[in-house]
Design a protein around this nucleic acid. Structure first.
Lengths: 260, 260
DNA sequence: TTCTACATATCGGAA
DNA sequence: TTCCGATGTGTAGAA
């Protein structure tokens, strides 16, 4: 049987099915009235309400309310799920170590449980990552500056790895920081940090250039760049991906049986 | 009825029930064999597999595999869900604008659907935030440095808001950056950025101090701090919360009916 | 395991 | 709405 589904089960039935689902390696969805407590890196408490609890075979636990992409409470992969009936409530406790964390979900009533053999598979990123931007820069270094010659990627410095490192037309070192989206002061700080580190490596007085490649920068970021003598080059991910040729949306519109 | 549950429904039944659940404002859990495509800030594709789809009334859509806390694909709150039957498959499409994004989940077979009136409520953080750390510092400024006097929190600079701003025993400006956990080079960069901004505000030659308050720092971060003439003060969240008195775990151990 | 930075980050607060 | 930084960030890749 592919799916096990319990409608308004007793705590004992829920307990039994959770045990079986854990043993099978199923992913479990539980709807019910519960409270949630968490203690670990922080500590929090959630009062009674109707929630969705998802338990994965890799140890992930998610408590969702009716709002938000982020679970209201959770436990990361690698945790261990345990269920028990105590004080007339069904308790699901998920724990992990390093850091030590505990999630406690107490159901006064379980309204529905479903267990199913969910499979894996990663979503293949077809476009849009910082790696795409890097490929584009390496393919056409003049986007950074006329005469720019890349020499290394992920080059290590005392301040961390530089996205693209190279030399300008005068042979002076240039640090390039890539961002896939509009950036603020933090990205300028990151670039400045790498530039400083390279300056410390070079003979005194060697000018070290810094270029922030991003679709756009905030006003404050632009001021900080000017303040630090750093440059911004506007390169959009669309430009990076299409090489000048815009892609058209070709998805078909107009369906039968559409609801929503 | 509190929960609506369909076992191995036809696409038409699924479609009908999704429509009803959307109208009621229910949160929906769908188990089935599907492919997923996403296009928006990035673009990705996920091949056939057995997955869990969660649809919330606020427009959130989550596609979960058997692994990981992060959904393999998703749509943020504010999106609009639509369902349709097309080419013999049940399609759930979730779209939003600004940025324009589309999530497309195509089920070859739906094995289970459950709809339930999930309620809200935020998890109340009882301890452990950066705000706690700030309160602790304001309560006992000498933790930062002997003679330190806080003058403002979230003080604006050209580089952004400073967590705690004050003067040292000599009356010189001091910038304090708070972190609730162990920090790396990025936090040093953030502090350095604020210090630089304050230095630009002050008369030339005014020494501006910078203190990073965090439980600990990485080796590289420590080197960078030294390089920049900045300080680190180790203040743990536990110290911040308990004021010297350690809390004991009082949770009861030893339950009946425990499984897992 | 730890370190380092990316992410379709998400989220909340402020201007 | 944009800006800005915190987050129990999570996650991957490298040392």
């Amino acid at each position: 049987m592919s799916v096990v589904s319990l409608h308004e089960p007793s705590h004992r039935e829920t307990l039994w099915e959770l045990e079986a689902a854990f043993a099978r390696g199923d992913t479990v969805s539980v709807f019910g009235e519960c409270t949630v407590e968490y203690d670990g890196r922080a500590a929090s408490s959630l009062g009674p309400g109707a929630r969705l609890l998802v338990l994965k075979p890799d140890g992930t636990a998610l408590v969702h309310t009716d709002e938000g992409r982020t679970p209201v409470n959770w436990q990361p992969p690698g945790s261990e799920h345990r269920a028990a009936v105590r004080d007339g409530r069904l308790r699901v406790r998920s724990t992990r170590t390093n850091p030590s964390e505990t999630l406690n979900v107490r159901f006064s009533a379980v309204d529905h449980l479903a267990a199913y053999a969910v499979t894996g598979g990663r979503s293949v990123d077809v476009v849009g990552s910082e790696a795409d931007l890097k490929a584009r820069i390496l393919e056409e270094p003049s986007l950074v500056a006329d005469g720019f010659e890349p020499q290394a990627t992920e080059r290590e410095t005392d301040a961390g790895p530089v996205d693209v490192f190279g030399v300008d037309a005068d042979g002076h070192p240039v640090v390039v920081e890539l961002k896939r989206r509009r950036v603020g002061p933090d990205a300028v700080g990151q670039l400045a940090r790498y530039v400083s580190a390279v300056e410390r490596e070079e003979p005194d007085g060697t000018p070290v250039g810094g270029v922030l490649v991003a679709p756009s920068v905030t006003d404050r970021a632009a001021e900080l760049l000017a303040e630090e003598g750093l440059d911004h080059v506007a390169v959009d991910r669309l430009v990076a991906e299409t090489d000048g040729t815009e892609l058209e949306e070709t998805d078909v519109v107009g369906d039968d049986d559409t609801v929503g």
